[in-house]
Design a binder for these strands. Structure first.
Lengths: 328, 328
DNA sequence: TCTGAATATGAAAACGATTTCATGATTTCG
DNA sequence: CGAAATCATGAAATCGTTTTCATATTCAGA
């Protein structure tokens, strides 16, 4: 593998001159430029990434935390982020945290050892105080999740409004016996706020909430299946259910169908995100503008990396949209 | 940010001694070890990744090509690969090629400039001759796709057998009017072989193929919708359809349902991969062992990186499994 | 008692690229 | 015409880590 020293030797010039040609610095004659270019081609030379990173003090790499890449919401986010990153000359390292605090902390080392220029967090289990000290090593952008205290840029949606919107829709459809079926990460603001919005919508409509109609730890299609099994065993089951994702909604819908229940006659179901699955299963859902979230987050990240200034709090808050289909 | 020089100064020792402690080399007294450890903690020191990479001539990073991370097949592959990579101390860079030859070539620079230690290709549009010269820069493992000429490790399934299995199932169910609905990348061995297997199954059963029952460029749920629209307009439509993915099958099933057709009575549908979607939509499908493919590919990659020897052809061929549900 | 091996520590070199500083030539402007 | 600026090129330093080579001391075995 040729080095800049080999190119210099072959061109009969110094490494400084070769570097000037590579980096298009001024004050190199055309004749010398051609000598260098030809030598590079003959030796099939490309600059060594590690040496460049060390000298330039930058990696052109960004790490993105996602709990699980198979979750369509996160894979959609990553698809757009990778695309935007590639446009701006950055690589994307995938960090699957699996909703584990320890995994989140482990990946922070990427920033500390300068293996990446910045981190984008789409899912947060740890308290913000665990992340805060790492800001001295590089910028962090929060996306989808959020924290009231974090002095960093963030892109998110007001989840209280989102779950209020969905729950209100069920209430407007005439439902009063409404169940709640989502994930429930203790540290997750999204989980907390969605519950707040759900309860507020019930309260505003004078509807009492029933503790036995709450199903937690539901993230996947299978979890939806399982939740329906529990729900269907109740003597007085709910007539509608608010879920935290289209997968969960789809799992409930499928299990209900398999059990001979009619949707929405016997059970109205509302999902979240508006993934392709929602359309396939005719699910009413609360849509999040994933493309915009991802694009904005990556733009804030690159801006933060390139500005080299003290990060400051900046919030981009996006709106939900209710997509009505036949499941409600 | 502290460097090893700062740590040495604070400990009253040389950089060599500090490096020996960090890397657990022998011949350093316990007393000196404690001095170094304490200095590192006080300075909050971690080694700089770029410097390490340069000196050690390794990046502990692997790049994975996927056409699109939102495709559940590929997101499933990547989930397992990232998990396996993290276990072995490697980071994963995501390279979305979007079925574009130019994109594939662009990402090859990662290997050439030594930004990664190896590449895993799960999707190939270019001829192998485009990849071959890059083997001198680092190992390449092919996964899911395959090439007869590539002198590299690969993990894949015999797609002729896979599509034969699925088509044979339809034939065994009594269908003779069978359509074909898949992607069709000219360079893709998978596409070619699936068609070969499909045609061979028809031929073995003495069934003539009908050109007007072939629908190409179908990859997504929406493509499935569109394919059904075309199919339903035919005067003599097929009674069964073999598809190249569960998404396409699901799209066809949904569109058929919306048009009042009954599955499988009016149209039998078989998918591919056995994603969660297949279970949700009750699709018969040809299952690929994605977990095993991913794990084996990552193991071969790490083995290739660490052996530092000339890569040689090695094939891991895995079996399909037919999952029968109510769509056929 | 002597010799070779093991132990302990540090300076210099190495990894490869880019920038800073230096030198000499040429051009421009007052 | 002379001083300052610009042009053109190269040597040395820099980025930060790890290894190689060197030196001195101690220990063990013949």
């Amino acid at each position: 593998m040729a080095t800049i020293q080999d190119v210099a030797k072959k061109a009969g010039l110094s490494r400084t001159t070769v570097s000037r040609v590579i980096n298009e610095h001024p004050y190199v004659t055309e004749e010398k430029k051609q000598l260098v270019t030809q030598a590079m081609q003959e030796l099939n030379y490309v600059p060594n990434s590690s040496a460049r990173r060390l000298r330039r003090q930058q990696t052109e790499t960004i790490a993105v935390y996602v709990p699980r890449i198979t979750n369509p919401f996160f894979s959609h986010l990553v698809e757009v982020m990778e695309k935007e990153a590639a446009k701006k000359g950055y690589q994307l390292i995938l960090c699957q945290t699996r909703y584990r605090k320890e995994q989140e902390r482990n990946f922070l080392e990427l920033l500390k050892t300068k293996q990446v220029d910045g981190l984008i967090l789409t899912s947060i289990e740890n308290d913000w105080s665990e992340f805060e000290p790492y800001l001295s090593f590089g910028p962090i952008v929060v996306c989808n999740e959020y924290s009231d205290t974090a002095q960093v840029p963030s892109v998110y949606l007001n989840q209280i409004e989102g779950s209020y919107l969905g729950t209100k829709h069920l209430i407007d459809q005439g439902y009063t016996k409404i169940g709640y079926c989502t994930g429930n990460h203790k540290s997750s603001r999204i989980s907390k706020d969605r519950k707040i919005g759900f309860l507020k919508a019930l309260d505003d409509a004078g509807i009492a909430m029933r503790e036995e109609w709450f199903f937690y730890n539901a993230y996947s299609v299978q979890d939806g299946f399982d939740a329906f099994k529990e729900l269907s065993k109740l003597e007085d089951p709910p007539h509608a259910v608010f879920t935290g994702s289209d997968e969960v909604a789809a799992g409930i819908a499928k299990a209900a169908f398999d059990a001979g229940w009619k949707v929405p006659e016997d059970l109205a179901i509302i999902g979240f995100d508006n993934q392709p699955l929602a359309e396939l299963m005719n699910l009413t859902t609360v849509e999040q503008p994933i493309d915009t979230i991802a694009r904005q987050a990556m733009n804030l990240m690159v801006e933060a990396i390139q500005s080299k200034k003290q990060l400051r709090r900046k919030e981009v808050i996006l709106p939900f949209q209710l997509i009505k289909r036949s499941s409600t």
